[in-house]
Design a protein around this nucleic acid. Sequence first.
DNA 1: ACCTTTGCTAACCAAATGGTTAAACTTAAT
DNA 2: ATTAAGTTTAACCATTTGGTTAGCAAAGGT
Lengths: 198, 198
Amino acid sequence: MTTEEKIFEAAFKVFQNKGFMGARMQEIADEAGINKAMLHYFFRSKEKLFEAVFMNAFGKLAPQINEIFNSDDDLFEKIRKFTASYITFVIEYPFLPQFIIQEMNNNPDFVEKFLKEEQRPNPIKLVKQIERAIELGEIMPLSPKQLLLDIFSMTVFPFAAQTLVKGIIAISDDEFIALMEARKVHISTQIINAIQKG
Amino acid sequence: MTTEEKIFEAAFKVFQNKGFMGARMQEIADEAGINKAMLHYFFRSKEKLFEAVFMNAFGKLAPQINEIFNSDDDLFEKIRKFTASYITFVIEYPFLPQFIIQEMNNNPDFVEKFLKEEQRPNPIKLVKQIERAIELGEIMPLSPKQLLLDIFSMTVFPFAAQTLVKGIIAISDDEFIALMEARKVHISTQIINAIQKG
DNA sequence: ACCTTTGCTAACCAAATGGTTAAACTTAAT
DNA sequence: ATTAAGTTTAACCATTTGGTTAGCAAAGGT
């Protein structure tokens, strides 16, 4: 593994745990087992290093989401696939959602920067699909945006608010993962039950 | 308004915007329009000041939640009341959820500190109520914890991930509030549709 | 009038932090 | 073997940061 990769991985870890403000360049260097000056040698500044890490993190999630948004599956199938595959993915990177959400909240200007990108998750196809399903009478009439929010909320929230959730419903890390595994089918079942006609 | 109150409000504002790590004592002092030494005069340290602010923030939310958890209402009524009153409350303090979630995630040890408190939201009564409703055949069989998570997710997530949500579904602050207003009844409708039998 | 307490300020301090520099080491091409 | 480029280190720097101190001013009790 090259020094640059070591730095990147260390930075990923530290930024995820402490956030941009909480992260210390020295800690990243220690974590990578190299001299602090190397951080600046490979990535000019803390901002630049963070940007690299953040973009990479977001770049992992975005295609996951986009693939579902834009697939040709039937609406129900899409919902089933999305919740399942998203949770599978996030169980591997449990801190990605809270990391992304936190940094976006702390730096709203930063948001625009990558919302212009090609990779940017764009739900318009899914929204149209929902509208069509309503017209066809396949599902109850509702606001597509609300439905989108429902799906995202149920899927992402438990990871974003991990510590709070574990604390309030009083479960261990292992129990949390088990709960999330079960959630893969629970969420789509709930949502489809709610919107399905008849 | 006393100096202490001025400090507290300024701290509340700054901590909420920047988080514990991002907040600067000088900025709090400036915001309060007083000398930095006064912060330490009234609240020994940054940690203590933060703790005061955080506990106050959490203390605002907890009773809201607990009241619903422990009321004697029927399950469906409880769900309706909770989503509506929680959203009403949070629209007034839109940054409270993300603040609490962020600081808990960044400082998991801190969690235990107040999860011992009397005020601590405790869902066991509601969980039993859900179990009973299942036994009575009023709702479909499901895991009470999942249902709890569903309710919380749908209610809290849009506020916790505010910046991301506004960015992805491309809406303004005003539209966001309107969407949340509509959500007061949307959420309970969806959930009740999903779990109700027949 | 005198003293004690409380609120407040300006100046100061030590530690931490992001960043730089100059020199040394490594590698591979000439 | 020499050179040139890239890599790595230790020491250093300027600034920021949380926190302290000594002294002033006002208020209130005696």
